[in-house]
């Protein structure tokens, strides 16, 4: 009891900092739910007097936001599924197997971890143009499979697994592929969960790459769509905040559902934002 009283100031400081951090999000939802006359009221009201779903109705009626959300789920979902497979395969090979060239390959992969993605943007745009994938879903998805953060994450995790089970499975006549699917994959579930959450979040939020690759607004993921709303509704902040709110809700839900994996992912894989 006394410790709670002694720590009360600390809790108050932390809560204040947390609320300050969350305030933009609160402001976003509040504006989206406010009737137009309150949005431009002087001074603005931090506690709402009246709420409405009018902006949401208008957003769904006049913009392809649903289409954009579906696009984002498909793009981020497909990228995540492939990363789970490919990164765990490569992570397993780098962590547990011995083969000529392994160290060079791994060193190459890790050395590009700090390369800003914008450095490769123009060359990748040229490659996609050359093979006719500009303005297509595969054009957005395939280059997304090349980022190596997940390989690093899976390798770090898999090398902590004991090797006895693998050896036992081989003695029982399991093929190399079966060792991977029946031993490594099930044991890697915690790391796979972290990888799935992080990858999905990363590609849900991706912006500059789809912006450059896609031309047809019907193919936009929601972040690119949001940016075009800004051109359309310029100072209609009620509408803009409503679009942002609709894009925010899925990630917030995912965060509350899988919160511990986010925190775990930072601890294992470092900061990504």
């Amino acid at each position: 009891m006394s410790s709670i009283r002694r720590r009360l100031p600390v809790h108050l400081v932390l809560l204040a900092a947390g609320l300050l951090s969350l305030f933009p999000l609160y402001w976003l939802f509040l504006t989206s739910l406010s009737p137009a006359q309150y949005v431009v009221k002087v001074p603005p009201e931090v506690v709402p007097r009246e709420l409405t779903f009018g902006n949401y109705q208008r957003l769904f009626d006049t913009t392809p936001i649903v289409r954009w959300l579906v696009n984002t789920v498909v793009i981020a979902g497909v990228i995540t599924a492939f990363h789970l497979l490919f990164d765990s395969m490569a992570g397993y090979a780098f962590a547990k197997r011995r083969f000529p060239g392994k160290n060079v390959m791994f060193w190459l992969v890790v050395s590009t971890l700090t390369v800003p993605a914008q450095v490769t943007l123009i060359p990748v745009f040229f490659i996609l143009r050359a093979i006719g994938l500009l303005d297509t879903y595969p054009g957005v998805i395939v280059p997304g499979l090349a980022d190596v953060f997940g390989v690093f994450l899976m390798k770090q995790f898999i090398q902590t697994l004991p090797s006895e089970l693998e050896h036992a499975a081989r003695l029982d006549g399991a093929s190399e592929w079966q060792v991977y699917t029946r031993i490594i994959l099930p044991l890697s579930k915690p790391a796979l969960a972290v990888l799935a959450i992080f990858t999905f979040n990363r590609y849900w939020n991706a912006f500059i790459f789809p912006l450059v690759i896609l031309r047809d607004p019907a193919k936009y993921p929601v972040q690119v769509g949001l940016a075009t709303l800004q051109g359309e509704f310029n100072t209609d902040f009620g509408m803009l905040m409503t679009g942002a709110a609709v894009a925010a809700i899925p990630m917030i839900v995912v965060f509350f559902a899988f919160q511990r994996y986010f925190i775990e992912g930072i601890r294992v894989g470092g900061v990504k934002g």
């Binding site: 969350l22 402001w27 939020n205 942002a244 995912v254 965060f255 925190i263």
Partner: peptide, 23 residues
């Protein structure tokens, strides 16, 4: 507290920037 401070960061830079533009 870790969750409280991490929550704002799951949102995209675009969305966050839109709110700050409004603010």
């Amino acid at each position: 507290y870790r969750a409280l401070f991490y929550l704002p960061l799951v949102n995209s830079a675009i969305l966050v920037a839109m709110v700050w533009r409004w603010i």
